[in-house]
Design a protein around this nucleic acid. Structure first.
Lengths: 209, 209
DNA sequence: CATTAGATGTTGACCCTGTCAACACTAAAG
DNA sequence: CTTTAGTGTTGACAGGGTCAACATCTAATG
């Protein structure tokens, strides 16, 4: 008989076994399937098969659970960006671009999760150091890749972080617009075309020639 | 004695006079002073001096009130962009840039309002045609200015809307990052420097030369 | 001008949510 | 085996969105 095993359906033991994990999973499931607003502490508890107040033993409040979900998002995203850029080991520009594409792809594939990560609720990450670290790592990837581009003479010299921010803004802006449904005004144009336009423009700019 | 005058402090008449207007004003005040999450239908009603259920005579639900607030935001923003670009009548590039700056300035000056305008809640504008129109007008300004730049040979030829989107993404991305507090990782750099970097990059790109 | 239908505001209620205090059960340390 | 800290439960409170039933007013109709 399993004493403290995986978070199964109905708990036979009084203790859950791994409630924090189960709550984050449940929260993520709710976010992904019904949107970030649908995430409710009670709902997550329900999904995890515990009472409404149980989450408070592991998360000081709803925001703390949100932060855990956001952190997981950053880690997943970072992993995806790493995976996408791996094939371009010898090509800094290719790597940089692949990371940007992976970023946008994550956003459009997991819009609700993306919103949790970048939304207002997570504005002040100071209370969640590991979340802060995870988000910093994601941005760090971009900065690193951009620095390599500069070394190879593929990107103009200058403050790497500032230049990375320029790219990040464009990529994040497009992702946000897409995720928040602001691109209807772009008519029939497919997302792929828009992604291509924006990412290309990061390098070439709007100017002539 | 005033029968149906301006929305004054305490209503002496049974009818309010102009409750929809008063509710939008109240809602906007709540959003600006305490953030979008603090906007409550009951709170707005309280501020307007009516009962909790009164708003339902004018707005089908909370989202409809939000939509009105968002619409007002788009109109204000459009006005600001127009005002900012007016001095550059003869200089398309200056006009385009001034609009972008006004956009960012609105966002940073009214973060909560900005979030209402572009947040998830307003993703589906199809139910609010006038909101859709207001937001389309804002984007239209950018497209128009960019088209003028193209005519003057200041921006490379191509699909104007697509190119405008490139600029919009960058500007919106920076605004969103700022508004959602994601720029702490940019260290001490002042917002002005970041704005300059991003808007310049829209034209020149990251590439060398 | 009196009547009356429709618009507008109010009350009271329902259910849901975040959160807490008081209590119960369990596992591990002594 | 007992103690104790950790973990889960129950019950409650305040606040929010929303609705139905009711009250009041305005304006158009006759």
């Amino acid at each position: 008989m399993p004493k403290r095993a995986a978070p199964s359906r109905r708990r036979s033991t009084y203790h859950h076994g791994n409630l924090p994990r189960a709550l984050v999973d449940a929260a993520l499931r709710l976010v992904e399937t019904q949107g970030a607003e649908a995430l409710t502490l009670r709902g997550a508890a329900r999904l995890a098969g515990v009472s409404q107040a149980a989450p408070y033993r592991h998360f000081t409040d709803k925001q703390a659970l949100l932060a855990a979900v956001a952190e997981e998002g950053f880690r997943t995203m970072t992993r995806a960006m790493r995976r996408a850029s791996a094939p371009h080991a010898a090509d800094p520009l290719g790597r940089f671009r692949a990371q940007g594409l992976a970023y946008i792809e994550f956003a459009t594939a997991h819009p609700a999760h993306y919103r949790v990560m970048f939304g207002r609720a997570m504005a002040d990450k100071s209370a969640y150091p590991s979340l802060q670290a995870a988000s910093a790592e994601t941005f760090g990837l971009l900065v690193e890749a951009l620095r390599d581009c500069q070394k190879a003479g593929l990107v103009r010299p200058g403050d790497s972080e500032e230049l990375a921010l320029c790219a990040w803004s464009a990529v994040h802006g497009l992702s946000s617009l897409a995720v928040d449904g602001q691109l209807v005004q772009m008519g029939g144009r497919g997302m792929d075309a828009l992604v291509h336009a924006v990412t290309s423009n990061i390098f070439f700019g709007l100017g002539p020639r």
